[in-house]
Amino acid sequence: MERNKTYYYDISRRFLSVVGQWPYQKPKTRLFFLTFVFIFLINALVTQIAEIFVCKNIDCIFEVLPFHFLMFNIGVKVLTYRFKSKKIKLLTDHLFADWDSLETREEREILKKYAERGRRYALIYSLYLYLSSIIFILTALGPRVLDVLFPLNASRPVTLVYPAYYFVDEEKYFYYIFCNMMMIMLICLAGLIAHDSMFFTYIEHVCGLFAVIGFRFERIIYKRDITKKSLIDCPNNVYHKQIVFSIHAHRQALQFAKLIENVFSISFAIQLIVDTITISITLVQLSMQLHNLTEATRCMLYIFAQLFHLFCFSFQGQKLINHSLETRDKIYNGAWYELPVKEQKLLLIVMRKSIEASSVTACKIYIFSLQNFTTVLQSAMSYFMMLASFSA
């Protein structure tokens, strides 16, 4: 039984609906869920800023900043979908409409494969982040559990989920604060996953479009398996119509990729800067907490989550680059030499467009790719060495 096309986007749809960013929600429903998320987000930001003001040294500030930047980035992600809502709706409309433009079962299977892959990426991404966050949250309960299992003469120091100042006695109201922080982490994380999983869906979709277009160009000239008769004897306008239709589809795929770039470019620039600084500061924290197994584990979990976050963006950016460039190779691998000269010239137009790779950038400065991912790691290490010298 063939699945409905909405099945492939249900994970992204559910997360976007939770944070009030699904394009087809009613305006009042979107505003309600968005307000609900921002109440928790502002709660986290205010208490973290309060903690910075009561800090007495630079080490304390370094401990607060990574989580403050995380909440800041989540706010950027959620607001991106809010301020770009019209373009997001346009992207999503094309997402569903492109299924109806497919001509054959083979083309549908190609797009279905990419849609299934996008759904799988969204599922793995959300599971990884939530599992890491749950483990991270539970480490805050470690001292309390040890007080019950292996009590000491004095209670162990209170460890919160993340550094924050609640203007009350943390020892007395620990469980209330813990529950509040746990709710903040789980709800705000939904905003992060909603933004990223839909981005993965868009990238996989446009890669699927490029794959379908390449499939069409490779098979413009073919031989029937039954009759073994070449289609070369068909009228020239048959080839012309097929090529013009494929060129139009290629142009739409390029426009879809440019629209993705337009929606996420500024947001990604902010996130990239913040993530690089965050990784550097967390490395400083890790170097200072090596003697404390619990804190060192928390730092490592946070660093791995940040690296995984950046790697997923770089991986998707690399896929878009590769698929946009593969179109020219697929045209060359087809039987273009059997086409009339007029149609061969039309193929040159597509090949010229395919020389320039489609990409996702941060304000046209940084291109998300696997090669540039290593550059970000090198930059983070450089900042880490500089910050470590200040905290020494």
Rank of each mutant, 00 (worst) to 15 (best):
Y128H: 10
M300W: 11
L138R: 10
T374L: 14
Y162L: 00
L307C: 15
R82A: 14
T294M: 15
Q242K: 13
Y81S: 04
L325P: 06
I187F: 09
L160H: 09
Q289H: 13
L16T: 00
N322F: 10
T282R: 05
I58K: 12
P340Y: 10
L377Q: 09
S369W: 01
I221C: 14
L129Y: 15
I137T: 03
Y383M: 04
I221P: 00
L339K: 06
A296R: 02
C60F: 08
R120K: 15
N57P: 09
L320M: 15
T282Q: 15
Y125I: 04
V161C: 03
K364L: 00
D93R: 11
I134D: 12
Q371L: 12
E343H: 08
F200P: 01
T276L: 07
R105H: 12
C179P: 00
S197H: 00
S369L: 07
T47A: 03
V212E: 02
I243Y: 05
Y302S: 02
M182Y: 14
L347N: 08
S354W: 10
M183C: 12
F264A: 07
K223S: 12
K353L: 14
V78I: 13
S379H: 14
F38M: 06
A249H: 14
T227I: 08
F304D: 11
Q316L: 11
V19W: 11
P163N: 07
H309L: 01
P66Y: 07
D196N: 07
V212P: 06
S369G: 06
L45W: 01
K223G: 07
Y7C: 09
P66A: 01
T282C: 13
L31P: 12
E107A: 04
I137P: 02
M386E: 00
K84A: 03
T159A: 11
Y176E: 14
Y175N: 09
C179T: 13
M198D: 01
I367Y: 15
A44C: 09
A362C: 05
A253C: 13
K330G: 00
A392R: 15
Q271F: 03
F69T: 01
L259D: 11
W22T: 02
P340T: 05
F256M: 02
L231D: 12
L347R: 03
A305F: 09
Y166H: 05
V18W: 13
L95Q: 00
T92S: 14
L209I: 10
R119I: 00
Y383A: 08
E2M: 12
F304Q: 13
Q316T: 02
T80Q: 09
G214K: 09
V212G: 04
P163K: 04
I321T: 06
Y366H: 08
V46E: 00
S391P: 06
H291E: 14
L16S: 12
F199C: 04
L91W: 05
V206K: 01
K353I: 11
N73Y: 06
K84E: 08
P157C: 04
T29P: 02
F174V: 06
V64M: 00
G317F: 02
S155K: 12
Q252N: 15
I88A: 03
R82H: 14
I58N: 05
I58E: 01
T139I: 13
F62S: 03
T29M: 14
I321E: 05
K342L: 11
D169I: 03
K112P: 09
C299P: 05
N4S: 15
V263M: 01
S287K: 07
Y7Q: 09
F304S: 10
I74T: 08
